[in-house]
Design a protein around this nucleic acid. Structure first.
Lengths: 222, 222
DNA sequence: TTTCTACTGCAAAGATGGTGCAATTTTATT
DNA sequence: AATAAAATTGCACCATCTTTGCAGTAGAAA
């Protein structure tokens, strides 16, 4: 599913150009024309990435970034500054505020798009609701798994199990870990239960991307 | 433990300046003066971040990046390009090759340091359970052993035994120590059992890197 | 040489996870 | 609310891989 990007800049032209290019790349774009609106829109849409112009009316990009970083919901959101300023001090301040990147205008839209793709490429593996591994796309929010454009329907436990394993591809999850993560410490289920769910997932996915590590646990691999 | 950074650039001055600034920031810095040396040093030191100049003799930064990204060991390593080129096409190519960022010279060392801090802050926050010795890479999380890019599959006890020995290369582990560490004090197994597992490991690894110290125990050596 | 020690091939014992079937619980539908 | 459907969990059996031990042998140390 499309990643959401919020762009805040007070120049309508720039907003337009970036929006056009990012949408062409498949992102869902939200815009804001000043710092306050940026924060408002961020709260409303929870974008995965926020691009902030530094020089904006009603709160600069730096201020907006600081405020957003205070809120738990945006602690891990990607934030990129975009500005005409080539002021080194500001740049450093921006990065120390907790931005992930810093771009100086004029930026070619193509370069910007590439950088953003690069950020998402790495970032998506870790914290977004959407996990992308190989041909798989696992959407935590929508409870949907896509494999090569085809939608696979999994039951809740199956989904959670797959999502857990796929959240760290390659990592071996111990049976205990799995039980705690998915069933919690309260409920007690037999060991066979995990097997059975693993079996169902393997059946439904068709491809065998869940490897058994005997005596240890399971892992997701391509 | 300090994060390791490998810098590859053919200009000694730049190498020197960056090294100085990054070391002042607490990083461990390794340098290389061309593409081939960069790959060599990367394999040797397994840095967490690699900074590659694009224009270098004996493999450009782009080529080096491509080669590194092919190897499982560097699939997730942070790679940043550094170059005088303001050529947009090259920049995009760099990012699509799988780089995480792109910096154009002249870069103020301070800005570079900030960016690198930002990258580490976000991506390197978790510790790796990876033991690296010579050509071997033992990943406790993934439960795999890599030797020269090849994956070796070990059974549980075999893996644990190897991991134990490799955790302190050169150290001789007494048979008793091994028994306590891997089997615990409860279970009682004969001495021969250790031998047999050692044998299996030797078989699977191909190379003989476990040395027998007669009458004492075993140690892992290159 | 003698005496330990560890390696080797073989094989049994043991543990582990896959499989089919079924009981039980939850959820959706009428 | 009643019924149907789906999801979840459990069990017993089986195939397979792991772990362990044995007996014989080769090699090093005394």
């Amino acid at each position: 599913m499309a990643n959401k990007i919020l762009i805040a800049d007070d120049e309508p032209d720039i907003l337009e150009i970036l929006k056009y290019n990012l949408e062409a790349e498949g992102y869902e774009v939200i815009t804001a024309k000043d710092g306050d609106e940026a924060i408002e829109q961020a709260k409303k849409h929870s974008p995965e990435l926020i691009i902030l112009d530094i020089m904006m009316p009603r709160k600069t990009g730096l201020e907006a970034c600081n405020i957003l970083r205070m809120m738990p919901a945006f602690r891990d959101t990607l934030i990129v500054f975009l500005t005409a300023m080539s002021d080194e001090t500001t740049e450093i301040k921006g990065l120390e505020t907790g931005a992930d990147d810093y771009l100086t205008k004029p930026v070619s839209p193509k370069v910007l798009v590439s950088k953003i793709n690069a950020l998402f490429r790495r970032f998506n593996k870790e914290e977004t609701g959407i996990i992308k591994v190989g041909d798989f796309e696992i959407d935590r929010q929508k409870y949907v798994v896509n494999h090569n454009e085809e939608e696979i329907i999994l039951a809740r436990k199956e989904f959670e199990l797959l999502a857990l394993l796929a959240s760290k591809p390659g990592k071996v999850f111990l049976r205990n870990e799995i039980l705690n993560q998915i069933w919690g410490t309260e409920v007690i289920v037999g060991d066979r239960t995990i097997d059975v769910h693993i079996r169902k997932i393997r059946q439904k996915l068709g491809v065998d991307c869940i490897t058994t590590v005997k005596g240890v646990g399971y892992k997701f691999e391509l």
